[in-house]
Design a protein around this nucleic acid. Structure first.
Length: 815
RNA sequence: GCCGGGAUGGCGGAACUGGUAGACGCGCCGGAUUCAAAAUCCGGUUUCCGAGAGGAAGUGGGGGUUCGAUUCCCCCUCCCGGCACCA
């Protein structure tokens, strides 16, 4: 009787081995080729969920595979430990955020070890530790000196009942999640990092990043949104200050029939002084949350201000409106409107009975009716006086030149990308290292006084930041003049921590932000994480990497050479969540089936980039496969020793199994190494094992080819299911550990075939299959194909027009 | 609303560069084993027509390019991710 498959004991054994052998702790080895394999670190929310298990398993498979390819692999792990959930838990249960966070980290780390991930824990990074965040505080002060950070007013969601700032996700249908009060837009001073200073570099480099998915690069390109246009000044009747707008379509300038400003614009405020209607409208505009999705989907409203701008070419009066879809913080807070050639302007003009003027006509002379809808394509100018007949480029240049000559405007490059607001009015984050002095204004904390440590023994109530009420934290002296001063109580956006942690893993204990070890390990060779981070986290990290580079900390510009974005884990077609009650706890599954089964299912159920539909039956199927695998090896070994195959002495069936083995080695190597196609890799391993189980041959050579096949399966599945493979490798007679084995080699001579099967089509429809010698010529193949009995039924009596032969695949006869 | 992605048997998915649609797994059906069940093993399984050989249809919907389209192009529907304070 074979030894039964008992995952709990073999998994514990393998994990003990890795721990005692320190299999995954790596130092810098300049002679070896390094491979830095990283997954987006988790927020320590309490327990691992299936999404974590999926991304960590993907990364672990890649790390273990690359190790078998001879790479010197680093795979670290850490904690994105600041964030709102800790404050929410504190409000709900009265536990201080720090305590809650550290407890969660302990729990999740134990779960990760139970799943068998090959992490170098000696490099663990926890972002809520002062020894970590001191360096981002330090970098902030360096950026301050360089003018890369600045303070300006910007909009937040204000909950008037809780007297606190809300995150966008805390605003539900325009109301505060706890108070249910209508949220207001409010402007407060906040700190910004000048990511726009790097906009061109961040954009241009995308063209030289073949290791990133096109979709992510496209999203980042669109997000940066570089455009070339013209900045123009419109005089305003009765005002000294002109109104400046930016447009990418100066060719439509003669079609401007109104202009719109934001509710917060000074001209709107001025009109409100005399008009109660305008005042009421402005107040209504502020009763909305600040997210772009809300602004873009809400009803477009506006009101005339009773003020006119002067058209810079015609001198005509153009009415000025205040509108809820124009935002003060974007651009100049004012837009020119061309309803004839912009959809939003067209809708707005229709609604408010504003003139719609056609100034562009299709270049091919097609008639269009501007009363039916806006014509937004580029074309030829009409109704534009001296510019009539010009195409877009000619008109763009003519009008731009005119404005540059008259000093009323200029060509300008504009970005959709806005500077990064890093201030958060929250407690559980890294303090922004600034001191406010009545005389010296905002002064960065000197290097020798860093870190500014966040006090951890606090009571969180949910109404404002507790830091404001801690005189011991706030009260300080000005580093410049020594007078009494106040500390900044805002903390960093948590994206700041996640924008450089990947570099810190290289040197977690360095007495500087980075040291020479980062030069060895960075950039990350393989980065894996959720597609939801395609823009913000990945763009901020690319920005930070450059700031660190320009500070002389590294020579690397791009932090992540290859990027894999994995899909979500769904159940019943929806993301797993407590609200929906469709959560599957990894812990219970591991207890029932073992880590290998869970890992195998995760990798088998879907390709990594797609969403993965959870299936309890599928997990059982993976468990069944683990058992079949286990007993196949056990039964083989129980029957005695096996020799190495002698290629010259194999029968046809033996040769066929050996061919299958080497075909599979080639396929799985390609699937994992090139395609990140783990599901098909596993399917191929299953096929090979099925072939072994069907293979009934006790002869010496028969046992030899089976042995070779089983060893190959053990080696090739070891990245996916490392524990069972650790055990089976020893069962197969090896003293070594499978984790240190090289990837199996393909024997090209085993792949050779004498005859191949070709598909025969008639007019593209499958009509038969024929066997031909592998080296058959085109004429022989055609003759054999046409001679096929079933093919004859469709060819007979018809004229053969063309025969297409796709070598090794098919023959298509066109009649 | 804007940007990005997706849709293939009863289900998850495969088909990599335009060349056999449905690999592999789940489920289901039939059989073996068993006193019985579980577990395990063997066979079948896109739909329709046909005893069979075989034929017809078929990759969200509509059109197009091609000897040949799940794959390329145009239009549409639905679902998912992101939209700058969730991480």
């Amino acid at each position: 009787m074979s030894t039964p498959y008992k995952p709990e004991s073999i998994e514990a054994q393998a994990q003990r081995y890795w721990q005692e052998a320190r299999s995954f702790e790596v130092g810098e080895a300049p002679g070896k080729q390094k491979f830095y394999c990283l997954t987006m670190f988790p927020y320590p929310s309490g327990k691992l969920h299936m999404g974590h298990v999926r991304v960590f398993t993907i990364s672990d498979v890649i790390a273990r595979y690359q190790r078998m390819q001879g790479m010197h692999v680093l795979q670290p792990m850490g904690w994105d430990a600041f964030g709102m959930p800790a404050e929410n838990a504190a409000i709900k249960h009265g536990v201080p955020p720090a305590e809650w966070t550290y407890r969660n980290i302990g729990e999740m780390r134990a779960q990760m070890d139970r799943l068998g991930y090959g992490y170098d824990w000696s490099r663990e990074v926890t972002t809520c530790r002062p020894e970590y965040y001191r360096w981002e505080q330090w970098l902030f002060t360096k950026m301050f000196e360089k003018g890369l950070v600045y303070r300006k007013n910007s909009v937040v969601n204000w909950d008037p009942v809780d007297q606190t700032v809300l995150a966008n996700e805390q605003v539900i249908d325009g109301r505060g999640w706890r108070s249910d009060a209508l949220v207001e837009r409010r402007e407060i001073p906040q700190w910004f990092m000048k990511i726009t200073a790097y906009a061109d570099e961040l954009l241009d480099e995308l063209d030289r990043m073949p290791g990133w998915p096109d979709s992510v690069k496209t999203m980042q390109r669109n997000w940066i949104g570089r455009s070339e246009g013209v900045e123009l000044s419109f005089n305003v009747a009765g005002e000294d200050e002109p109104l400046t707008v930016y447009t990418t379509r100066p060719d439509t300038l003669m079609g401007v029939t109104y202009m719109a400003v934001a509710a917060e614009h000074p001209l709107a405020a001025k009109a409100a002084e005399t008009s109660p209607d305008v005042r009421a409208f402005i107040e209504e505009c502020l009763q909305t949350d600040a997210s772009e999705a809300t602004l873009e989907t809400m009803e477009k409203k506006g009101m005339p201000l009773g003020i006119s701008a002067i058209h810079p070419l015609t001198g005509d009066e153009v009415p000025l409106w205040v509108a809820n879809f124009v935002l003060m913080s974007y651009g100049t807070g004012a837009v020119m409107a061309v309803p004839g050639h912009d959809e939003r302007d067209w809708d707005f003009a229709r609604k408010h009975d504003i003139e719609i003027r056609q100034v562009i006509a299709p270049a091919d002379g097609t008639h269009i009716d501007i009363g039916e809808g806006a014509y937004i394509d580029k074309g030829v100018l009409v109704n534009s006086g001296e510019y009539d007949g010009m195409d877009f480029d000619t008109a763009f240049n003519a009008i731009a030149n005119h404005f540059e000559k008259t000093g009323r405007g200029s060509r300008a490059v504009n970005y959709r990308l806005r500077d990064w607001g890093v201030s958060r009015q929250r407690y559980w984050g890294a303090p922004i290292p600034i001191i406010y002095c009545d005389d010296c204004d905002a002064v960065p904390v000197p290097e020798e006084d860093l870190p500014v440590v966040l006090p951890e023994d606090v009571k969180v109530t949910g109404a404002g930041s507790p830091l404001k009420d801690m005189p011991g934290f706030v009260a300080t002296t000005c580093p410049k003049c020594g007078k009494d001063a106040r500390r900044e109580t805002d903390t960093f956006d948590t994206f700041v921590e996640s924008s450089w942690y990947f570099a810190r893993y290289a040197c977690p204990d360095a007495d500087a932000m980075l040291d020479e070890r980062a030069a060895y390990w960075t950039p990350v060779d393989q980065y894996t994480g959720g597609i939801e981070h395609a823009i913000l986290h990945l763009l901020y990290s690319r920005f930070f990497q450059r700031v660190m580079r320009d500070e002389g900390l590294t020579e690397v510009s791009e932090p992540f050479t290859n990027l894999l974005t994995q899909g979500m884990v769904l159940k019943d077609g929806a993301k797993m969540s407590k609200n929906k009650g469709n959560v599957v706890d990894p812990q219970e599954l591991i207890a029932q089936y073992g880590a290998d089964t869970v890992r195998l299912f995760m990798m088998f159920a879907a390709p990594p980039e797609q969403s993965l539909e959870w299936s309890d039956e599928g997990v059982q199927g993976s468990y069944r496969f683990m058992k079949r695998f286990w007993y196949a090896v056990m039964d083989h070994v129980d029957a005695g020793k096996a020799a190495a195959p002698d290629p010259g002495a194999l029968s046809g069936d033996q040769k066929a199994l050996r061919r299958k083995t080497h075909q599979t080695i080639a396929k799985i190597g390609d699937d994992i190494g090139r395609r990140n196609s783990f599901n098909t890799a596993i399917a191929a391993a299953m096929e090979l094992l099925n072939a072994v189980n069907r293979f009934d041959d006790d002869s010496e050579q028969g046992r030899a080819v089976v042995h070779e096949a089983l060893e190959a399966v053990v080696l090739m599945l070891s990245p996916m299911t490392p524990h069972i493979c650790h055990a089976l490798w020893n069962v197969l007679g090896h003293d070594s550990a499978v984790v240190d084995q090289p990837w199996p080699a393909v024997d090209e001579s085993a792949l050779e075939l004498d005859t191949i099967e070709l598909v025969v089509q008639v007019n593209g429809k499958l009509r038969g299959r024929v066997s031909v010698p592998a080296d058959a010529g085109r004429e022989d193949i055609e003759a054999v194909a046409i001679a096929d009995e079933n093919v004859q039924r469709f060819v007979d009596g018809k004229e053969i027009r063309k025969v297409i032969v796709v070598p090794g695949r098919l023959v298509n006869i066109v009649v």
